[in-house]
Each structure stands twice: as C-alpha cells, then as structure tokens.
C-alpha cells in the first residue's frame, strides 16, 4: 500500500550512499523484506527502477529476499512460522493467526522488517 514512500526512501538512501562513497555506477542493490509487511514486491521493484532512471543506478539489478515470519502466540505459547495464505485467510493483512490454536493474540518476532542490505558499486 505504501510502496511509493518505501521505494522513495530506498532510492534516496542508495543514491546518497553512492555519492558519499564516490560510486560511479550502481551494479545491484539487495533488500530483505519481511513477508508480513504489506508491500507488494513487484510494485516496489518497478517503482525503484522507475525512480532510478537517469541516475547512476539506472541499470542496477534489484534483488529482494523475503524474510519468513516468526510469531510468538500469547494464548498457547507457540513459537515458530505461520500458515500459508491459502490456509490462513488473514495472513494477507499481516494479521496471522496461530497455527496451533488459531488465536489472533501473538507477537511478531520476525517478518515485519524492510532492510537495505548492500549496494554493489563501481568506483
């Protein structure tokens, strides 16, 4: 949903970092995005490429790795991964239920992050 703001922030961070490090050309950027964020990965990729146009990162490859979710259920104590979207209709809204007891009351330990891991540049 807020793909535009996150893509702009990624692009701004990449271009700032590259400039500070005297990069001439960006070869690739690597991102890690949690499966519980509401980002549409294809749209993020598309927007980053669009926003890179006309810059030193114009031809950069955008690599995105998805981070699997991990929850801690407050109701039954379950710790671990979640069900697939087909088995859990709510996962789509980042509102995963516990695979063991179906409770909504859980703490997300992993899966909400959005990390810019590394940038590969030519200097």
């Amino acid at each position: 949903m807020h793909e535009f703001s996150i893509s702009s922030e990624i692009v701004r961070t990449v271009l700032d970092t590259v400039e500070k490090n005297n990069g001439k050309k960006v070869l690739s950027i690597q991102l890690e995005i949690g499966e519980l964020t509401l980002f549409n990965i294809e749209q993020v990729t598309f927007l980053i490429h669009e926003l890179f146009k006309g810059s030193v990162a114009e031809d950069a490859e955008v690599k995105i790795k998805t981070i699997k979710a991990r929850i801690h259920c407050k109701a039954c104590g379950y710790k671990g991964g979640i069900r697939s979207e087909r088995e859990d209709p709510f996962k789509h809204f980042a509102l995963q239920t516990c695979p063991q007891c179906n409770s909504f009351q859980n703490k997300v330990e992993k899966g909400r992050e959005c990390i810019l891991k590394r940038i590969q540049v030519v200097r």
């Binding site: 490090n21 990390i115 891991k117």
Partner: peptide, 13 residues
C-alpha cells in the same frame, strides 16, 4: 573497481 557497501539499514525502523 567493484565494491560492496554493506548497509544493513532498517528502513521501517
């Protein structure tokens, strides 16, 4: 002339 810039920057944080 190729360098990896390791950022580990959390954007939503």
């Amino acid at each position: 002339e190729i360098f990896d810039i390791e950022l580990e920057k959390a954007l939503l944080a």
